[in-house]
Nucleic acid binder design. Structure first.
Length: 503
RNA sequence: GGUCCGUUCGUCUAGGGGUUAGGACGCUAGAUUUUCAUUCUAGUAACAGGGGUUCGAUUCCCCUACGGACUACCA
């Protein structure tokens, strides 16, 4: 009987969640749901200096918007709480002590300045300073002084950290669910700080302790953590705990150039890197989010899921439920994936077209209100149905449909060349024809107008193009007679007259 | 520099010892819509390089190159 599946997303609240973090959360969510497990969220705020107010709420709100909220977290099913590491502070020291007592860790009194000095000195000689087995007995540690001396220095209030005593001469053969077997030489590892002089654990300690205490079965995280995997596995071993399974996800890369997509990229790349809008509380700097840019949560989920994973078929459109059903860690890629903003937009178009017209009309309405325009809902729904296929975002609706609401104020120059000498006469005749029509609906108008043209042997182009130009101001837009019906007889005639006057 | 990870069309990817190396986005062209967009059809374009193993490698192995991550008392 295997352990129940419990996975976590463990961001640190140092700012808004970025798109790579969202993908990590998503894969954890999918894996949990697929295996009837639990997806929990833990806030890793052990670095007091980097805490950003609002970041935690942002993370929760973003996950909620995307529909991948955790099953357990702060204020929700707190079976293993608290879920904020700052509130678990009292726990960690005990575990650090446990490692000291078992000989797996030691106190180090080196000051930050002393370490900086060593690093610089090595650098000058073209070497790298590594704090590990080869020099730890030459440094200022409890390994080279007596227990009494150590105790004395600590009680006198001297600053110290607790470092992991990495075992020597071992080849670690580790297994990653995505990458397979990976080997590490312990002699090349450094003695990481587990417990800081400010009384807080480092990520490494807190993470292992909490993953254990919260009964985490699988650690699914970004590839940037791969280098610390041996440390983590060694920590589990030192505690005598069974380690969870590991899966390191490929990184999401910038669309142009090299490197991973980072928070700093902000809006520089022309697309958001955050799920929601964010204003930095200190600098006041604003960054835009997918939600406010008009992306649907379905788009973000779908696109992100396909960055580094696919189900092996040619299907590209997946709902969250389908993803849950089909997700499989074995099919996650090893290589990093560049973020393609164009394809992301295409996904949004797909989901926009899928939306029902009433919802889209509702989303579009505020744009009209802002311009002081009010239209009956039925009409708006009709308009939306005519234009949605040409849009990627609701925010594009206005430019695609302005002529439904206001008469053109100018006429496209190139198209105006089709306005010939005989056009005014034809348009005048067209007005007479339109005036006679009682059943003013698209198909009926079309039939009558076309009849009139064939009867009088008038070329289609001679009428249709100036007609469209009069109503729209350019040669674009949906089926002309649909427009005619929607703006009505009176407005149609008014616009034709205006065109005759001004062209 | 060191450690680790990676490498199929421009991008996301399928595939896997013998295939016309498939799909999607993008781009181009044609059809349809008398418009534009959509849609449909077609086209464009890839196994990083060199060695092995093999009757046969894009697929397996090694090396090289290139790319990336990590290398803090940050996570």
């Amino acid at each position: 009987m295997s352990k129940p599946i419990r996975v976590r997303f463990a961001p640190s609240p140092t700012g808004p969640l970025h798109i790579g973090g969202v993908r990590t959360a998503l894969f954890n969510y999918l894996f949990a749901k697929k295996n009837n497990g639990v997806f929990y969220l833990r806030i890793e705020d052990t670095d007091q200096n980097r805490f950003v107010p609002g970041a935690e709420a942002y993370i929760l709100e973003a996950l909620e918007w995307l529909g991948i909220s955790p099953d357990e977290t702060i204020g929700k099913n707190e079976k293993f709480g608290p879920y904020r590491q700052s509130e678990r502070k009292h726990l960690y020291k005990e575990y650090a002590d446990q490692l000291i007592n078992s000989g797996n860790a030691y106190y180090a009194f080196d000051t930050a300045e002393a370490l900086d000095f060593h690093r610089k000195q090595h650098e000058e000689q073209g070497k790298t300073f590594i704090y590990n087995w080869h020099n730890r007995e030459k440094l200022d540690t409890s390994l080279v002084i007596s227990t009494e001396e150590t105790a004395k220095r600590i009680t006198y209030g001297e600053d110290y950290v607790i470092r992991f005593k990495t075992p020597v001469n071992e080849t670690l053969q580790l297994h990653d669910l995505i990458r397979g077997d990976i080997k590490f030489e312990t002699n090349l590892l450094d003695d990481k700080v587990l417990f800081k002089s400010d009384g807080m654990p480092t990520y490494h300690l807190a993470n292992i302790v909490d993953d254990h205490l919260m009964e985490t079965s699988h650690v699914i995280r970004g590839e940037e953590w791969l280098p610390s995997m041996p440390l983590h596995v060694l920590l589990y071993r030192s505690f005598g705990w069974e380690a969870p399974e590991f899966a390191h996800l490929p990184l999401i890369l910038k669309p142009v150039g090299n490197g991973k997509l980072s928070k700093r990229d902000g809006d520089k790349l022309g697309f958001p890197v955050f799920p929601l809008d964010w204003t930095d509380p200190i600098s006041g700097e604003k960054s835009s989010g997918y939600r406010e840019k008009g992306f649907f949560p379905e788009t973000v989920i779908n696109f992100l899921a396909l960055l580094g994973w696919n189900d092996g078929t040619e299907q590209e459109l997946f709902s969250l439920a389908e993803l849950v059903d089909k997700f499989d860690l074995n099919r996650v890629h090893k290589a990093g994936a560049k973020f393609d903003p164009e394809k992301n937009k295409w996904f949004n178009h797909q989901y926009l077209v899928q939306q029902n017209d009433a919802n889209l009309a509702k989303a579009f309405a505020p744009f009209l209100t802002e311009k002081g325009i009010s239209v009956p809902e039925v009409i708006l729904i009709k308009i939306v149905s005519l234009i949605k296929e040409r849009a990627h975002f609701v925010s594009e609706f206005w430019d695609l449909s302005d002529f439904f609401f206001v008469a053109p104020s100018s006429y496209d120059e190139k198209a105006s060349k089709n306005w010939k000498e005989e056009t005014p006469v034809l348009m005048q005749e067209l007005i007479s024809v339109l005036e006679e029509i009682t059943d003013f609906t698209s198909l009926n108008i079309e039939t009558i107008v076309k009849d009139w043209m064939t009867k009088n042997e008038i070329g289609m182009g001679k009428v249709m193009q100036p007609f469209r130009l009069s109503l729209v101001g350019a040669l674009k837009g949906p089926h002309l007679f649909d427009i005619v019906e929607l703006i009505g007889k009176e407005e149609t005639i008014k616009r034709i007259e205006k065109a005759i006057d001004s062209l």
